[in-house]
Write a protein that binds this DNA or RNA. Structure first.
Lengths: 206, 206
DNA sequence: TTTCGATGTATCGGTCCGATACATCGGTGC
DNA sequence: GCACCGATGTATCGGACCGATACATCGAAA
């Protein structure tokens, strides 16, 4: 038990899937991948790597430059690569679509970042669950605002409004994504292997 | 000294400033105050209350209904009230305007929630620091996106874009707030006691 | 009358962060 | 040549906060 909550695990596995890396680069790629959405620190990364080593999802040491065989004689410190078990585990995590995924902001974000490697069916389920979750939150907050409106000063009200609009914006974003997913699901037959189309989203680009 | 990071402390102090409360109500008011911005759990609230008791910022036990003297015979469990030291400490925390406040999202949010009780000068400094911080983040992320654009699939790109637009939106929000603050600062003489105008924001309502 | 949801207090294990401490390496300037 | 500096790189520690959970009481609905 005690496994849940490991957002980092999924992210690391996903990145190492592409190529082996050492911790420093891993962190940079991680935060570049998630952009403004989230940032991880070494204080969580290194313990996580250690843990994943003992579980056997990843392994240490290997040539630093898997893609650039040219310059040798250069040796990076510790290179991590994903194991066969790790790949299995990654697929397992990717196929999750339960509440844990869309309840938690971080979980959703990281899962979304690997949507290109996720089955279309799972994608849609996560997107819809997430939207439902946000709409619940919206209802709750809206009710809370009208209930306590008279007690609030201008600044607090402004904060509420801003937060509310942020969530509303995210719901609109999800709507577009879901429409896009539905359109592409209707266009193609049924079940499509997602691995084969790495570079593009299902919907229209613009 | 391990003191930093206690966002809850400020929030609790601010709420107890208005009236004594027990833990349950405190949490509800807390999350109603912050709206969609953030939510605290009992797992952090109760330890925090305990800690604040030992520090002497708050004290236990007191009449549950300070505002409704009518029905008696009813007794709530544990009521917390702020002490004189607590009020001092609250003012001290409120007057902070250093990096800790605008670097961290949570710190900023909670401080902002009590802007009605904050000096105009401090408000402006926090708002501007926050904006600068977000613009730095923006630059960083934008650079990161253009640097790695070719490596990213459609979903990742979409996540980046969404995150970016969220931050841009927040910057616009801050711009409005800052303009509003500046306008009201110019309209009035100099230094104004903020405590006296609890119900309204400086800028125009609409 | 039992069952249920709201109120109410409290803790434990766990995740992740911020700060910090190192050590190496390729410049840039003197 | 060498001192300095910022980027690269590995690692840990204390602490904040969460999620789940465990209780216990109360009024109202079934």
């Amino acid at each position: 038990m005690g496994r849940r909550g490991g957002v980092l695990e999924l992210a690391v596995l996903g990145l190492l899937q592409e190529s082996p890396m050492h911790g420093y680069e891993l962190r940079k790629r991680l935060n570049a991948l998630l952009g403004a959405f989230r940032a991880f620190s070494y204080g969580s990364l290194y313990p996580c790597l250690k843990d994943m080593l003992t579980r056997g999802w990843i392994a240490e040491d290997g040539p630093a430059d898997a893609g650039a065989p040219a310059l040798s004689g250069k040796r990076a410190k510790i290179v991590y690569r994903i194991t066969a078990d790790g790949k299995d585990h990654f697929q397992e995590l990717l196929s999750e679509s339960g509440p844990q995924v869309w309840e938690d902001d971080d979980h959703f974000g990281v899962h979304f970042a690997f949507f290109a490697k996720t089955e279309a069916e799972v994608r849609l389920r996560i997107l819809e669950g997430r939207r439902r979750r946000l709409e619940e939150r919206l209802d709750h907050v809206r009710a809370s605002i009208t209930r306590t409106r008279e007690r609030l000063d201008g600044y607090t009200l402004e904060l509420q409004k801003h937060g509310l609009e942020s969530v509303e914006r995210e719901v609109r974003w999800l709507n577009e994504l879901i429409d896009s997913e539905r359109a592409s699901a209707a266009a193609r037959p049924v079940h499509q292997a997602p691995q084969e189309i790495p570079g593009d989203m299902p919907g229209s680009p613009s």
